[in-house]
């Protein structure tokens, strides 16, 4: 795609400008810009005070004004989120492989996992605080707890849905369970696993920010809650914006990794 764009840009084209623009690639930027324009206009039209809804220009102003704390707290949130997410990846992969290993384990643990996942993680934060005190640790753990479930489910599903014919062919050759897992199950579950990372990373942000809001002296969650208590609404929105940017960046990174690692699963759509 990028190549095609560059080629087209390099060649002196006789086509009019409107046709030379790749609208699909430009769309995310144009739509984002559109959202900000509508937001700005509605604030002006409805004459909203900035304590209710600050205009985007005011939010950007706040970002510049409070750049130092925003930067520090953003890094802190990124750190707790990423750490929690990494633990979730390792644990999720391990538990997923364990659950997918046998139908009995799958049947036994699945309802427990659903039940655990149904618990709002914000309710766990006080318990984590009792155990570990306030600060980084509960934020990391909340990020971990909220994001490991989709990884587990996806890995286990990938393992549990091996085609019976494939299994028959291999078992007839004398394959042991471990052979089938290594040769088929694990490679097969990798697209599910990498797909789940995209969901997990965004959930990890939710977890870490919830925990920071309730029980921490650092991070964007804490910054926003103290800004809110001082009626500094532009700063609250600045924090939200930073979170959105971090979320998009991490999501893009995961999508990139997914594409690199399991290209075969995506290329299959190109088969004739």
């Amino acid at each position: 795609m990028t190549m095609a764009m560059q080629n087209r840009a390099a060649k002196p084209s006789t086509k009019p400008l409107m046709q030379r623009i790749n609208w699909v690639r430009a769309a995310p930027f144009l739509y984002t810009l559109g959202l900000f324009v509508i937001w700005e206009l509605s604030v002006i039209v409805f004459a909203l005070p900035q304590t209710l809804l600050p205009a985007p220009t005011r939010v950007f102003e706040a970002i510049v004004q409070y750049w130092s704390p925003i930067w520090k707290n953003s890094l802190q949130t990124l750190y707790t989120t990423t750490l929690g997410f990494l633990i979730a990846v390792v644990a999720g992969l391990g538990i997923g492989l364990f659950i997918g290993w046998s139908k009995t384990i799958y049947a036994g643990l699945y309802p427990l996992m659903i039940g655990f996942n149904a618990i709002p993680k914000v309710a766990l934060v006080p318990i984590l605080v009792i155990w570990f005190g306030i600060g980084t640790v509960p934020a990391v753990l909340t990020a971990f707890l909220i994001s490991f479930f989709p990884i587990v489910v996806n890995v286990a599903t990938g393992l549990a849905t091996i085609e019976p014919e494939t299994e028959d062919v291999l078992r007839a050759l004398g394959a042991r369970k471990i052979d089938i897992m290594l040769k088929v199950g694990i490679p097969r579950s990798m697209p599910y696993f990498f797909g789940s990372l995209k969901i997990a990373i965004t959930l990890a942000f939710v977890g870490s920010v919830v925990s920071e809001t309730v029980a921490s002296n650092y991070g964007l969650g804490n910054m926003m809650s103290s800004a809110q208590s001082q009626f500094n609404v532009p700063l609250v929105f600045a924090g939200l914006l930073m979170l959105a940017i971090e979320g998009i960046a991490m999501y893009a990174l995961m999508a990139f990794i997914e594409k690199r690692m399991t290209g075969w699963a995506h290329r299959s759509t190109m088969a004739n």
Binding site: E165, V169, A172, L173, G174, R188, T262, W264
Partner: peptide, 19 residues
């Protein structure tokens, strides 16, 4: 009494591993 490895099998579904 257990899987015999002197057999080759092929099904209607080719079940080639895509990776």
């Amino acid at each position: 009494t257990k899987p015999v490895s002197i057999v080759g099998m092929a099904f209607q579904n080719p079940t080639m591993l895509p990776w």
